[in-house]
């Protein structure tokens, strides 16, 4: 199953499941990354990590480690 960290800049995808637990999982969900939400990977930081995504109409940044907790499907060019 691909995760959000595998999605390249300029691609969009749909969240299928959240793995991980505790604070990280809750925080990711609280920020609106829930099942069936569309996410667009917008840019990568100068040092390659974290990444910035567009979700629910705003910009969210998260580390690649955290992006690995988000399983995604339907990866496509935006």
């Amino acid at each position: 199953m691909p995760t959000l960290s595998d999605v390249k800049v300029g691609q969009k995808c749909v969240v299928s499941k959240l793995t991980g637990e505790g604070a990280i999982k809750r925080r990711i969900m609280d920020m609106g990354v829930t099942k069936n939400t569309e996410v667009l990977v917008h840019k990568v930081a100068p040092l390659g990590d974290p990444i910035e995504v567009t979700i629910r109409g705003y910009e969210l940044s998260l580390r690649k480690d955290e992006a690995r907790c988000v399983e995604v499907k339907d990866i496509a060019k935006a």
Binding site: A23, I28, M31, L60, S61, L62, E66
Partner: peptide, 10 residues
């Protein structure tokens, strides 16, 4: 303690 997520809004 717990790992601290970086997840934040720009």
């Amino acid at each position: 303690g717990e790992p601290v997520p970086f997840v934040m809004e720009l």
